[in-house]
Design a protein around this nucleic acid. Structure first.
Lengths: 189, 189
DNA sequence: AAGGGCATGTAACACGTTACATGATTAG
DNA sequence: CTAATCATGTAACGTGTTACATGCCCTT
């Protein structure tokens, strides 16, 4: 009934009423890097939320296209969200393919494995740069909204900082791994 | 055909022949923190691997219990593993419930939210300590096998270091988050 | 006597992705 | 003319978890 997906959607809608299409297009800011769902999941979930009385729909007629259905959380929805937010959070089963590959790295050609992890490092560094640009943008907003934990900008900021921390950690580890696997190429010592 | 699960299992078996039960019991070392599958998934997958000629089965009769079926990778299996290991690795869709909660933190009671993230920080710190103990253990092994990338100890070491980096990052971020959300309790400022 | 561990397997369910389906408008 | 975007929805499929099923041995 109160699935993670439903609550995540409620969280989106609590910031601003949206249509299913907009949600699936990841209109929402910083979180788009940490959450995603396809429309085929979102539409039925919105219907469930509505049936549960957690959101209200506003039908906006359009020509040529199906009606837009813009959803807004009800009071009950906001309460359910607030309760879920501070509810129990099990420690997220990490299942990492990268870890598996590292674990088996001895069974691959060292040079190819090194290249793989170097590539990973590159990807993480790239995303790190994106997050960092976002961070700077948020920090330089007029009125310094990130200082106030009740602003949406603070929430964006928090998510971005988390992304930075994680990408940094992974970039550094991948770099280390690539360096260790890279064979001492020309003459072996 | 060569699913991630199958390759992960092959990776386990490449280190040492195991039964399905042993795999599901997470006999394998450091990776158990980063990978898991239930027996109901493992048994059919082992059957598929066998059908594909990537593993061999040895039936070990037992009294009272069903035969043990101990699996060993074939040459083809090892080759498939090696190919998979350095194959393309898409950037792992991160879908983090913690990020969602941070993103919506403004809609929860600040004190409760602070407690949530403090709890998360505690969990990460705890796991960090576990990984660190493991790290120390590996570093102090006689003969310093972690220096040689072809040893299983190095693979364990790599996985553990990755865990350390990630737990550290998350612990620090959670701590920061909790501190920011914690209301300036007694007198405001 | 009951519960847990060993040891395998199947079935039912939940969640997520990809593909199917419709249909008008707009850009190349 | 073709493809993409808007806008919703359903169906099929793959993967993963939980529960069902069997049956012996050992510990409490």
């Amino acid at each position: 009934m109160n699935s993670t997906l439903g609550m995540a959607i409620l969280g989106f809608l609590a910031r601003a009423p949206l249509t299913g299409y907009e949600i699936s297009r990841s209109v929402a800011g910083a979180l788009r890097f940490f959450w995603h769902a396809s429309h085929s999941q979102i539409y039925p979930e919105l219907a469930r939320l509505e049936a549960a009385g957690l959101v209200l729909v506003e039908h906006i007629p359009q020509q040529g296209k199906p009606d837009q259905k813009r959803y807004t959380p009800t009071q009950a929805g906001l309460e359910a969200l607030a309760a879920w937010l501070v509810g129990p959070l099990e420690p997220a089963k990490r299942r990492s393919e990268v870890a598996v590959r590292a674990y088996c790295s001895a069974f691959a050609a060292p040079a190819a494995a090194a290249a793989l992890f170097a590539g990973q490092a590159g990807g993480h560094t790239e995303r790190l740069a994106q997050f960092d640009a976002y961070r700077l943008h948020l920090e330089q907003l007029p009125g310094n909204p990130v200082a106030d934990t009740s602003t949406p900008e603070f929430a964006d900021y928090a998510v971005v900082l988390r992304g930075i921390a994680l990408e940094q950690a992974q970039a550094q580890w991948s770099e280390w791994m690539a360096a260790r696997l890279r064979p001492a190429d020309p003459a072996q010592d």
